[in-house]
Every structure is written in structure tokens, then in C-alpha cells.
Amino acid sequence: MTTEHGAVKTGDVVARVEDLHVHFSVSRSAPVRAVDGVSLEVRRGETLGLVGESGSGKSTTGLALLRLVDATGGRVEVGGQDVTDWSRRRVRSLRRRVSMVFQDPAASLDPRLTVGASITEPLIVHDLAASRDARRSRVAELLEMVGLRADMADRRPHEMSGGQKQRVGIARALAGEPDLIVLDEPIASLDLSVQAQIMNLLRGLQEQLGLTYLFISHDLAAVEHMSDRVAVMYLGRIVETGTPEQIYRNPAHPYTAALLSAVPTADPEAERRRRRITLHGDVPSPVNPPSGCRFRTRCPAARDNCATTDPELYEVEPGHRAACLYAVEAVEEMRAGAATTP
């Protein structure tokens, strides 16, 4: 099994999944293959952006790193240790090393607890502060780190704005000084003017504390802004990985190219010139993914053998990999096609 990136020093890897499968069984019918053979590595100090549409398996991959869902195949490694089969008890210590920030800050905080109590919870669970005083001063410190006043500790979530609640969610995730923070759509439910604040906060904390992020989002512009490397997912698989420059300037996989061409930009002149590569139909069911390449049913450049060969990720240039038999070539063909249709 090849890993997601060839030339890596193992010491640098904070977390890794190898050939991860997460299949959910619903009664006796065929399982939903939410994640179906994903391999990736997150290296210390970087942000790996995981981008894809709904049902691509990006969030499930993030949950698997905390063992919030169990792998039905493959391995999950954190800090060089295989945590795939850790007991419930041991998993608790895993969640100090890998923490998570969720999309909806209102839903991820207990409405009855003060903000201070919510942040104290992980300190107690992981036994990180011996006395009440130590906990209180740690809470104050964490609140200040995320740009809130220490006296906010006495507030309850309903007294705060969405952005402030998300800051609390981030403070909670920082409490155990984790090796990796999984950020699952952390800005998706925030107002535009507040999204920028949260992205700046996350980048600032990363520089200050040397944090490592897995940034999961469907927002392509946000992923480009936040990430050192990007992995694009489609129907339970990674279809392309590379640096933001490689992925956004020279996408090699037809799906990435179509996805990028569908994102509207805030520039009316560019929008008038835009030639969209329109995908037809819907994402197929993850219960029965298409044979061969999963994207072939919607791919404007699909060929006959796309139905029979399941493409693996291969390198199209150093550090840039795509899972398409006709990578690059197919994208050029699609662009030419899009340019001729009015």
C-alpha cells in the first residue's frame, strides 16, 4: 500500500490513515461506504485541507482520527501508534492528542453550562489542572488565546454571538495541548465578516503554538487560504492531492477541475467570461459506487476503460497526485469543450 505522499520522514507525521474504510450498516441492506480506501498523512505544523462535497467522506475521515467512528478496514495511526483497535479507555487519551472543532458552535456547547465550565471539562477529563485555581487560570489563559476576555467564562452560550461561540469551541479544542486539531467546517455557519476573523485566529494560533490542523471544508476558497497541502475527496476516495498552487492552478483530475469551475467568484467581469464545466446528474449513491473510476458516470472526459479500471493515485508532478487514468489530458479536453459551448 502506498501512502498518500512518497517522500516523508516518518518522524514528522502526526497522524496517518492507511487504506481507511468506514462502512455504515443500516439494518440488513448493503452498507454505506462513507470512506472507501483513503490514505493520508498529516505532518507536524502543517494544515492539510480536506475538501469535497456532501457525502464525499471528508467529515467521516476526520471523525475516524479521533475514533469517533470506527474503521471497518485499514489503520489509523496517531503519533506513530496504531490506535485502530484501542479500547474505549485508551481512546480517551487519544482525544487529548487529537481534538476537534465542529461546524455549529451552538450545538457543540452545552447550553446549560457556562463557557468556563465547558472549557474546564477537558481539563478535568484529561487531568490537566490539579486545583480549582489552576483550572480557573488555565481557562482564563485559553479564553485570551482565542481573543475573548477572561470574564466571558461566566457567560452562557446564548449570551454570545456565533463567532464568540466558535472561539469557545476552539479554546476547548486547545485545552489538552493536542498534537492535531481536526477542524470540521469551522466557519461554515458563521457570517462572512466573522469567517475572516476565525480564519485569522486559527492561522495566528498555528504560528504561535506550532499547531497541526486537518481543515475539513466544502469552501474551496477557504481551503486554499488555510492549507499547506490539499486533498480533494469524491465518493469516499481521495481523487487528488497537492499544494494549493498545484490543485487550484493546475488541477489534474477532471472532478477537481469541474469543482473549481463551479465556484462563483466575487468578480462580475470574471463571471461573464467564465466557462463552466457543468457536471450532469448527481453524485451516485455511496451504497453502490460505480465500477472502475467512481467519477466516470459524471465525467465529461470518461473513456471505455474508466468503467473497468479503478485508478490509483499517481504522481503527475512532484508532490501532486491524481487518481485518473487520463489525468491532465482529460482536464485539457474538458476545458476545450467548455470553451466552445456558449
Binding site: 469551475s261 463552466r276 457543468t278 457536471l279
Partner: peptide, 9 residues
């Protein structure tokens, strides 16, 4: 999703 959004627009 963005690809669906593009279709609807």
C-alpha cells in the same frame, strides 16, 4: 453543493 448550485443557477 457547488456543482449542484452551478446547475441551479
Amino acid at each position: 453543493d457547488v456543482t449542484t448550485q452551478a446547475q441551479i443557477l
